[in-house]
Every structure is written in structure tokens, then in C-alpha cells.
Simulated assay, not measured.
Amino acid sequence: MTAAIHVPQGAPLSRWLRLAAAILPVAATAVVGSMATQAEIPGWYAGLNKPVFNPPNWVFPVAWTILYTMIAIALWRLLGTMPRTGPSRTGWWLALAAFLVQLVLNAAWTPVFFTAHAIGAGLIVVAMLLVMVLWTIRLSWRFDRIAAWLLVPYAAWVGFATLLNAAILRMN
């Protein structure tokens, strides 16, 4: 017999502070990615051999804009579910830590792959990112299922990026 877990609702942060706490780290991740790719797309990246399933360059900023919006909303929702007390509070902090680790890995991949031209190291980073996004979804599910679902397209895109990174490594 499984006991139901009661997760008390109520965020200790104000709505505006939660909004800032959700948007700022995601926006910083997006800025790092943009800065690391802009100079490399027409030069180094254009010269790489790429698989036939590589999307046109314009797809990436469109996809990432949508995904970063969904990621920020998911984080905003997760921040709103922080239990005030009890054992579920530890699980919530673990979900938040996983969320932040996957954002750090997201921010790290672009400079590793594009700026350092380290395709193999980029594959390691993006594979770790995929694992962390999936784990974040699993941990967040307990606190806010909508937040977890908002991360599913992100996981799919990172899975695709992992496959693409592996193919580029093999072809170069």
C-alpha cells in the first residue's frame, strides 16, 4: 500500500520575484548560446560536413526561442510549488538543482562545440544535458506536471541535437 504524498502549495517568493528568478537564468543561457554561435555559423560551422537531416540554420533560433520560453515557464511554475516544510521539500530542492544543472550544461554546450570547436567534448556535454533534462522532468513531475510536460519538447530537441552532434563528429 502506498501512502499519498501531500505537497503543500504556496510559494514563499512573490509572483514578480518568481518571474525574475525564472526568466533571468534562462535568458542568460540564451545569451551565452547566441554569443558563442554568431561568429561561428558562417565560418567554422559552415565548413563542417553535416548529415542530410541537419536543419537549415534559421530553424535553430526559432526552435530555441520557443524552447527557452517553455523552459522559463516551467521554471516559474516549479518555483511556485515550493513546499514550506516536510520531507517533500528535499525533493523539491533536488528538482530545482537538477533544473539549474541542466541550464548550466545547456549554456556550456555552445561554447564547447562552437567556440572551442570541440565536437567530441560537445557530444559529451549534450549527452549529459539530455540525461539531466530527462531527470529534471522526472523530478518536477511530482510537483507540477504542467512544468514537467513543458520540458518534453526540450528533451526531444536535445535528443535530436545529441544525434546531430554525434553525426557531425563521425563525419568530421
Rank of each mutant, 00 (worst) to 15 (best):
A28V: 06
R138V: 11
W135D: 10
W16P: 09
F60W: 08
F143K: 00
G10Q: 00
A108H: 08
A127K: 10
S88G: 08
L17F: 07
P8M: 05
G43K: 13
G120R: 00
W64K: 00
F160T: 01
V152E: 03
W93G: 07
S140V: 06
L103W: 09
I23Q: 00
V59G: 02
R142P: 08
W141T: 10
R77H: 12
T90Y: 10
G47P: 01
I71L: 05
P42C: 12
V131E: 14
A147S: 03
A98V: 13
L139Y: 05
M70Q: 10
L151Q: 08
V59E: 08
N49C: 09
W44N: 04
P111C: 09
G86F: 06
P61L: 10
V101E: 10
F143E: 01
L139H: 05
W58K: 02
M132W: 08
T136Q: 13
V7Q: 06
I119N: 13
A72T: 01
V131K: 10
A166T: 01
L105V: 14
V31C: 10
R77P: 12
F99T: 11
L19N: 09
A155E: 04
W135P: 04
P12Y: 08
N57W: 02
V131H: 07
A72K: 03
M132S: 15
T162K: 09
L67Y: 02
V62T: 13
P153R: 13
W58E: 14
V26A: 15
T37I: 11
I41S: 03
V104D: 11
R170K: 14
T2G: 08
D144Y: 05
T115E: 04
A63E: 15
L13C: 08
L123C: 01
L79I: 07
L78R: 06
V152F: 02
K50L: 05
T69N: 04
T136C: 14
A147R: 01
F60I: 05
V101S: 12
I71A: 04
L75G: 05
L13K: 03
R145W: 05
A30E: 00
W76F: 14
V131M: 12
G86R: 09
W64P: 07
H6V: 06
V133Y: 11
F143T: 02
A121L: 15
G43C: 11
W149F: 03
L78G: 07
W64H: 00
L100R: 07
M171E: 13
W93L: 09
L13T: 05
E40V: 00
A21I: 13
A167K: 06
T29H: 05
Y154R: 12
A11T: 08
L17V: 14
L139C: 01
L169V: 06
R145S: 05
